[in-house]
Computed example of a mutant assay.
Amino acid sequence: MNYTLHQLQIFLKITQLKSITKASEALFLSQPAVSIQLKKFQDQFSIPLTEVVGRQLYVTDFGWEIAEAAQKIINEVQAINYKTMSFKGQIAGRLKISVVSTGKYVMPYFLTDFTNQNQGVDLIMDVTNKTSVIKSLENNEVDFSLVSVVPDQLNLDRVELMENKLYLVGGTKEKFNKNIAKAKIFETYPMLYREDGSATRNAMESFITSRNISNPKKMELTSNEALKQAVIAGLGYSIMPLIGIKNELKNGDLRIIPYKGLPLVTNWNLVWQKSKNLSPTAKAYLEFIKAEKQRIIEENFNWYDQY
């Protein structure tokens, strides 16, 4: 056997994405280069690692075994690199964060300076739904999570980052009938909701329930981006986080509709399990956030107070 670390990395990426094309894009390599390395890697085994059925690439059972071993080898190599940097006095290691979908408009700004200052830090940020974020915390799969509503069922520590404001939002192509009172807008027009379990949906439903508002026309969309595009198209109205619609408001694609009791205000929280033994990298990031969060907010979110 004479395979290289580069071949292991390419094969592992192929198994993760189940596509040579997608693997080449993820690794910033040409598709022929990835195919050549896969062939060279396969030539060292007498048992197939992958097979193509129709036009779809599948990983064989043996291939999955090799991929698991490849992941362990790559992890060990990374650990060596981290240890080398640590001995040089540098912060090095993995930082794993799970983020609720709307948080993708927030979290990168609280990471950029830290990762730029510490080149030995490898960031893994999973943007997903609230249910998956909570699960990743429960299973100790991440260092931190970003949520707007802190779950009660877990014993968590937290740092508040910034406000999360939710407004009633509509598109600008279709203006609602001005003869209809704003108090009747929920009863008259379709309201667009996120999926069950979404913190945005929970906030919207709590607001409607607490005010005994009748809302007979409902539609559900499973991503914030899909919901935003539906509102822009005039499919309905929604209560949405301000953080995700900055450009659409600026461009005149969306507009905030003043409504009594809005905006709803919560906070973006960086949370972690109290019992978790934070890595040196995670501890360094926590110190960075506590020291720099106000500066980051002032530099990147000064537009927030305009609404």
Results as ranks from 00 to 15, higher is better:
211 R>M: 06
48 P>A: 02
86 S>M: 00
139 N>I: 14
252 G>Y: 08
117 Q>Y: 10
239 I>R: 04
46 S>C: 10
132 S>R: 03
135 K>Q: 05
212 N>Q: 11
145 S>P: 09
223 S>Q: 08
294 Q>F: 09
285 Y>V: 10
245 I>T: 09
33 A>V: 10
9 Q>D: 02
174 E>S: 03
91 I>M: 15
128 T>A: 06
303 W>H: 07
254 L>R: 00
236 G>H: 11
173 K>P: 11
60 T>S: 09
67 A>N: 06
72 K>V: 08
227 L>I: 12
19 S>P: 01
195 E>Q: 07
3 Y>Q: 07
60 T>H: 10
153 Q>S: 01
10 I>Q: 05
235 L>I: 13
249 L>Y: 02
58 Y>Q: 08
143 D>C: 15
244 G>Q: 07
280 P>K: 00
267 N>V: 14
234 G>C: 00
34 V>I: 02
255 R>T: 01
281 T>F: 13
215 N>Q: 01
97 I>R: 13
271 V>Y: 05
109 Y>P: 01
304 Y>I: 01
292 E>Q: 03
45 F>S: 07
50 T>V: 14
145 S>C: 11
29 L>M: 12
96 K>N: 05
70 A>D: 12
247 N>E: 12
36 I>S: 00
268 W>N: 13
295 R>T: 14
255 R>F: 03
135 K>H: 15
85 M>L: 14
118 N>Q: 03
242 L>F: 05
292 E>F: 06
20 I>G: 11
261 G>D: 03
154 L>S: 08
191 M>C: 13
161 L>W: 08
174 E>I: 00
87 F>A: 02
47 I>F: 00
56 Q>E: 12
285 Y>Q: 07
114 F>L: 04
78 Q>M: 09
275 S>P: 13
223 S>R: 00
160 E>K: 13
127 V>G: 08
1 M>Q: 06
19 S>W: 11
142 V>E: 08
232 I>A: 04
40 K>Y: 07
34 V>T: 04
213 I>L: 13
66 I>G: 04
44 Q>H: 01
168 L>W: 15
80 I>K: 10
250 K>A: 15
189 Y>N: 09
30 S>K: 11
79 A>W: 15
81 N>C: 07
281 T>D: 15
22 K>F: 04
164 N>S: 09
209 T>K: 02
251 N>S: 07
220 E>C: 06
184 K>F: 05
34 V>H: 05
91 I>H: 14
147 V>A: 04
42 Q>W: 07
5 L>G: 11
239 I>H: 00
28 F>H: 06
69 A>R: 15
25 E>H: 08
126 D>T: 10
96 K>D: 13
296 I>K: 06
225 E>S: 09
229 Q>Y: 13
20 I>H: 06
136 S>P: 07
209 T>R: 01
186 F>Q: 15
157 D>S: 14
132 S>L: 09
189 Y>T: 02
114 F>R: 02
105 Y>L: 14
222 T>L: 13
2 N>Y: 06
133 V>M: 14
